[in-house]
Nucleic acid binder design. Sequence first.
DNA 1: TATAGTAACCTACTTATAGTAGTTTACTAC
DNA 2: GTAGTAAACTACTATAAGTAGGTTACTATA
Lengths: 210, 210
Amino acid sequence: MSRENLKNIEKQISAYKHGKVPKELRIAQIVLTARTMFAQNGYTNSSMDELAKRVKVSKPVIYELVGSKDNLFKMILTEAGQELQERIQNAVDQASSLESKLKAGGLAFFNFVKEHRQLWLALFVNDQGLFSKDIALIRKEQSDLVSNLIVSSNAFENSSLTYISGIAHALNGAYEALAIWWFDHPEIEPETLANWITELLLPTDLPLNR
Amino acid sequence: MSRENLKNIEKQISAYKHGKVPKELRIAQIVLTARTMFAQNGYTNSSMDELAKRVKVSKPVIYELVGSKDNLFKMILTEAGQELQERIQNAVDQASSLESKLKAGGLAFFNFVKEHRQLWLALFVNDQGLFSKDIALIRKEQSDLVSNLIVSSNAFENSSLTYISGIAHALNGAYEALAIWWFDHPEIEPETLANWITELLLPTDLPLNR
DNA sequence: TATAGTAACCTACTTATAGTAGTTTACTAC
DNA sequence: GTAGTAAACTACTATAAGTAGGTTACTATA
């Protein structure tokens, strides 16, 4: 991602006196500018008119070069997805044991998110603002339910509330992701899915508490 | 959710000859019609003009009664969130052991999703179509990476590929959800988060394989 | 039974934004 | 210096959220 940086490109562009900039350079400028804009405002709250203003070019130029708002977003999404993928893959490859691979992969992921917080949010999670607070509230309630379950089970009796809250959210995310995956495997019964996650967390041949 | 059903309400409405229907009844009709529309087309692809057509009323009536498109969506989202919450809570309360509570809660969740597939997707996951395929592709790649990790570790050697794929998606969902939760706890280090999930899956005082 | 008040509803607009048709400008090759 | 073309522009259309201001029909009271 950002193999070229925006400053660099704009410096090159400033060499063209009368504003007629080669296609590829202009595309790079547009995509990078759009990435910042999407990160700041999300997809819906970003407009192509504003993008045109930021790039200091008229709208048809943008449409000529990147096709559509959708397509522009997809380009940015795909590129970021690829970089994320590569970084995780490299991290996993360089570790040896299962445990260290899991740690390294997770670390690579969280570092990526840390470096690109706003962008990651805008690309992979939600469309800036609109309902994120409402969904966050619902998730929080679900997670509180799970937190209570964990606490009352004494499974994590020496753990901090922060840790338990985080784990509860992670667990909810697992259920949610499995439900999304389920759309492509509709023949599976709800009971089966519930068992999968339960057994993942509480292997039947192991004591429940630790 | 849908404490009243649409047919019922429209039957009551048809009693009013000249189309002047009491506020509350009209609101119920609008909300239920909108719920169907959002489930079919998602938020962005649903228009208030179409809603007005479906309800057979002019647009200002709808704005008078539900305020805005945002607000309408939030009403539906919140109500669905509450029902989901209640169903999981009831299921958990009625079970006794930690394991049975996890199973029952999970089952309640997956049953809810099964009963309201399209609506659940539209409300909690994404905005119909636009980028869901692109994000799904990225998730699939991440999950394949995790699947390979799982397979090569021999941790699940007797498991079907379908199961492994599902678990991999669930695991990715856990990372993603934890990253979202992280926005409210920015002081935590990436290493810490990576360790949390690793230890959840591979408790250090237990053998790695089972 | 006439009429005042109001709840429910309407037509016709404004504003914002994605996307396009058709034209103009400046650099390049001969 | 002129022809061709790449890069850019102005000015439009279409769709959709949201609103201003007016109309209709039911209800209560004289």
